[in-house]
Simulated scan of single mutants.
Amino acid sequence: MNEPATRALPADPTDLTGTGLSAAWVDELVERTLTEDLTGGAPLPREPDIAVSYDVTSAATVPGAQFGTADLVARADGVVAGLPVAARVFTRLAPGAALTAGAADGDRVRRGDVLLTVRGPVRALLAAERSALNIASRASGIATHTRAWADAVAGTGAVVLDTRKTTPGLRPLEKYAVRCGGGSNKRMGLYDVAMVKDNHVAAAGSVAAAVALVRERAPRITVQVECDTVAQVTEAVDAGADFLLLDNMTTDQLREVVALVGDLDVELEATGGLTLAVAREVADTGVDYLSVGALTHSSPILDLALDLREG
């Protein structure tokens, strides 16, 4: 299987080094997530005691001076992602909290494993609980789903890609989670790869015209062309495309395209209607990539929980 390398547990569970996530973006996400849960969108006060008082249940039932320890625990087997982001949720409401990592992003975990331990004011831990779990559960669900695809095509040379079918506002986190699961990111947005699709061809008049116009406007950018037929592949290759998106082609058609392209410096991506059941068969055709929108738009969460204990 395509097993990720063993990772040392981070000394600082909030450290974003190596994630590719911007600290500013993560802190904005944490703020937005907490205000959604605690204030209904109003700005969250910086003073922790004031902030956690919005959790009416915890404010009423937990003494303000009570400290405790909580474990973020896996309730199902999977691959974890988003732990540094979840850790920052806790430190936003409890700046002095002590955090200990039990797992690193990208690790396979089993039901019952402790992923993160936090010690701090109990009110703050409980006020942060759902926001931290929502973030880590969503990211870990995507990482777990991606790992299943990566394992399915392991050894073929094909790479599993995500798409732009992401949750609005969560794209950096979701694409990071794909990487944690052993997949790769196709493009982050409309700005970093030119994707010529049927509507662009219709507007420009032909594949060749569309590619030429993109080359004129952005000469250094990678140009990908969507192809539904082998005839369109020939047209796209002749037009100078760098990358072909082979949409809803049969495995026989994919093999034909792989043979047609041969040693040309053109990458091939299979997409459309792919399932885990056929992933290996598709990868064995010789394509470079399988793109799977479901990684980000349909992955179920990984069930995680926060267990408060004494001490």
Score class of each variant (00 low, 15 high):
residue 1 M to A: 15
residue 3 E to I: 15
residue 6 T to W: 11
residue 9 L to W: 13
residue 12 D to K: 10
residue 14 T to E: 10
residue 14 T to G: 13
residue 21 L to C: 09
residue 21 L to W: 02
residue 32 R to A: 15
residue 33 T to C: 11
residue 41 G to W: 05
residue 43 P to R: 05
residue 43 P to W: 09
residue 44 L to P: 09
residue 47 E to Y: 09
residue 49 D to Y: 10
residue 50 I to D: 14
residue 51 A to I: 03
residue 51 A to W: 08
residue 57 T to R: 14
residue 59 A to I: 11
residue 71 D to I: 09
residue 76 A to R: 03
residue 79 V to A: 07
residue 79 V to H: 08
residue 83 L to C: 06
residue 86 A to Y: 03
residue 88 R to N: 08
residue 89 V to H: 14
residue 95 P to R: 01
residue 98 A to P: 04
residue 99 L to K: 01
residue 103 A to L: 09
residue 103 A to V: 03
residue 108 R to Y: 01
residue 109 V to F: 09
residue 111 R to W: 10
residue 114 V to E: 12
residue 117 T to L: 13
residue 118 V to Y: 06
residue 121 P to M: 07
residue 124 A to N: 01
residue 140 S to T: 04
residue 141 G to H: 09
residue 147 R to M: 03
residue 148 A to C: 02
residue 148 A to M: 04
residue 149 W to V: 05
residue 152 A to P: 06
residue 154 A to M: 04
residue 155 G to H: 11
residue 159 V to K: 11
residue 163 T to Q: 06
residue 166 T to D: 10
residue 168 P to N: 04
residue 172 P to W: 05
residue 172 P to G: 03
residue 185 N to K: 02
residue 198 D to F: 08
residue 206 S to R: 04
residue 207 V to Q: 00
residue 212 A to P: 00
residue 216 E to I: 08
residue 218 A to N: 08
residue 225 V to R: 06
residue 230 V to P: 01
residue 244 L to Y: 06
residue 246 L to D: 06
residue 247 D to A: 08
residue 253 Q to V: 07
residue 262 G to T: 08
residue 265 D to W: 08
residue 267 E to F: 08
residue 269 E to P: 06
residue 276 L to Y: 07
residue 277 A to L: 12
residue 283 A to C: 10
residue 288 D to Q: 00
residue 289 Y to N: 11
residue 296 T to H: 13
residue 299 S to H: 09
